[in-house]
């Protein structure tokens, strides 16, 4: 049986922390083509999950494109995306934040990068900025040029900048790819905290251990299609699709 015909499992329902105001997410008949290439085809995706949803899948599966679609940075070729019952709009996008796979930092100091966003959102106080810097462990780098930070430090600054907008939905695209183990741990702590505070986190990672630690639900993408969407314990214990089994076993998902 081809993977794409597998039933998409409704997630099990463990007790949830506070639920984001923008949930639920409903995606219907979503397709995306670019330069004539079909890149995504998602007949239906429903997320009504507080806490953290992890999106997994091989390189090129379409994970980053899916985040861009859900955040309104690109428009689908067809289909609909609705958050909390309302169609995707700039007003909704404003209540979301995305930490890109490659952080784009301004040509300013670390502190000025945060000040910029705080001021743009009219939330700009020095205390707010210092609290964010402390939260991601960059207090001692505050006056350094942001673009001279190490790769991991840049990712932490990008996270702090996303938090500065106090998003209801936080998208993270492989945010720990260049973090050291201690930074990964502190990062996961921060993400759990903000998930407990009522922000829904939608998270792309290739780190299976991290996905096990963080995810309440897992969405698995294979060649632009969702082959599996289930509660995390079930996904890791008994992945239903061949592609997911192969991915978890470290094989090429053919």
């Amino acid at each position: 049986m081809p993977d794409t015909l597998l039933p998409v499992m409704p997630p099990a329902d463990p007790p949830a922390p506070a639920r984001s105001a923008l949930m639920p997410l409903r995606v219907r008949d979503l397709t995306l083509q670019m330069r004539g290439q079909p890149l995504l085809d998602i007949p239906a995706l429903d997320l009504d999950c507080a806490g953290t949803t992890v999106i997994m899948g091989a390189n090129g599966a379409g994970k980053s494109l899916l985040l861009r679609l859900l955040h309104g940075l690109i428009a689908p070729s067809s289909g609909t995306i609705a958050w909390g019952g309302a169609a995707m709009s700039p007003a909704i996008a404003r209540r979301q934040a995305l930490v890109f796979q490659k952080p784009v930092l301004l040509r300013r100091s670390v502190a000025a990068n945060l000040d910029f966003v705080l001021r743009a959102r009219r939330a700009g106080t020095a205390e707010a900025r210092d609290a964010l810097l402390a939260r991601v462990g960059l207090t001692h780098k505050a006056s350094q040029p942001a673009r001279l930070l190490s790769g991991g430090e840049q990712q932490r600054l990008a996270l702090a900048r996303a938090l500065a907008t106090r998003p209801d939905i936080l998208f993270l695209d492989e945010p720990t790819a260049s973090l050291d183990p201690a930074a990964v741990q502190s990062f996961e702590g921060i993400v759990s905290d903000i998930a407990d505070e009522g922000t829904s986190v939608i998270f792309v990672t290739h780190d299976v251990g991290q996905a096990r630690r963080m995810a309440r639900e897992v969405v698995f993408l294979h060649q632009g299609r969702i082959t599996e969407h289930s509660a995390a314990p079930r996904f890791f214990a008994a992945p239903q699709s061949r592609a997911a089994r192969a991915y978890l076993a470290g094989q090429l998902p053919l």
């Binding site: 955040h71 700039p90 404003r94 934040a97 995305l98 890109f100 784009v104 301004l106 966003v117 743009a120």
Partner: peptide, 12 residues
């Protein structure tokens, strides 16, 4: 070109 996606994400 380098900043635009980030700026759009920040809804500036």
């Amino acid at each position: 070109g380098e900043y635009s996606e980030q700026f759009r994400s920040l809804a500036l």
